[in-house]
């Protein structure tokens, strides 16, 4: 079933990221995603960046489909199917949200009074949703040093006592998540990671997004740290659009 819903507003977050707000009467949990279709172009997976009565899709412009989507105006329709995937596990107590690039989009529904954040980007103007955290609860890193720590997301995480959190939620590109997994390795922490891979069907059929026999779209996209540590393909090889195995 394809939902077609008129958006309420289109907000600019950074030079490359927009958020589309709309009402959708469906139960969605943080970490779940939808397949968004732009008729005539293509269809892409996107996490919901708000999961209450008002829903939100936060679009990073990187290709034809996301570019077209970022230009949808209030009153115009978006088309999508879902929600799909396994949500993050919710906990009571202190949480740490670690988002690289546009990764903070899928973590945004988890921002509450118990949440602290780590936001990393190439430069200051690309830091997404850092303003949604209290000033003393946010650690920022930029590659060019234009804001916060000069360095990557792991450099920012070194500043934080990770064991103090009931749960650490992570979202970002696979290469970045690999560096985090290597960093925390077997430390005694609770961590869930939302992974990204080339996805075509979104419903556990086509095998495009699989890692070690797990389908990201139905077994994930969220996995706990111990499962990710067992994945031999994670951060090493993946299948191209054709199904050809390629190295990271």
């Amino acid at each position: 079933m394809i939902n077609s819903i008129r958006i309420l507003r289109n907000e600019i977050n950074t030079p490359t990221v927009n958020s589309l707000y709309f009402h959708w009467d469906a139960m969605v949990e943080p970490g779940q995603f939808v397949m968004v279709w732009v008729p005539g172009i293509s269809e892409i997976p996107m996490s919901l960046s708000l999961t209450g009565k008002e829903k939100c899709l936060t679009v990073k412009k990187y290709g034809d489909t996301s570019n077209a989507l970022s230009k949808v105006e209030p009153g115009e329709r978006i088309f999508f199917r879902g929600p799909y995937g396994k949500p993050f596990t919710r906990v009571k107590g202190k949480t740490l949200l670690v988002g690289g690039g546009s990764g903070m989009a899928s973590l945004r529904p988890l921002i509450d009074k118990n949440a602290s954040g780590v936001v990393a980007a190439r430069s200051s103007d690309e830091l997404l949703f850092k303003e949604l955290f209290a000033k003393d609860r946010i650690t920022v890193a930029t590659d060019d040093g234009s804001e916060g720590i000069k360095g990557n997301i792991v450099d920012a995480m070194r500043e934080i006592e990770l064991e103090a959190f009931e749960m650490i939620y992570v979202c970002g590109p696979e290469r970045m998540i690999k560096s985090i997994v290597d960093f925390v390795s077997v430390r005694k922490i609770n961590m869930e990671l939302s992974l990204e891979r080339n996805m075509k069907c979104g419903i556990g059929i086509c095998d495009s997004c699989s890692i070690d026999g797990f389908q990201l779209c139905t077994d994930g996209p969220t996995f706990n740290l111990s499962t990710v540590l067992t994945m031999k393909e994670f951060g090493r090889t993946k299948l191209a659009e054709s199904g050809k195995r390629i190295w990271f």
Binding site: G204, C206, D207, S208, S210, G213, F214, K232, E233, G243
Partner: peptide, 11 residues
């Protein structure tokens, strides 16, 4: 169906 990646077929 789910038969592009060797690891998936094995699972």
């Amino acid at each position: 169906i789910l038969d592009e990646n060797g690891h998936t077929m094995k699972r």
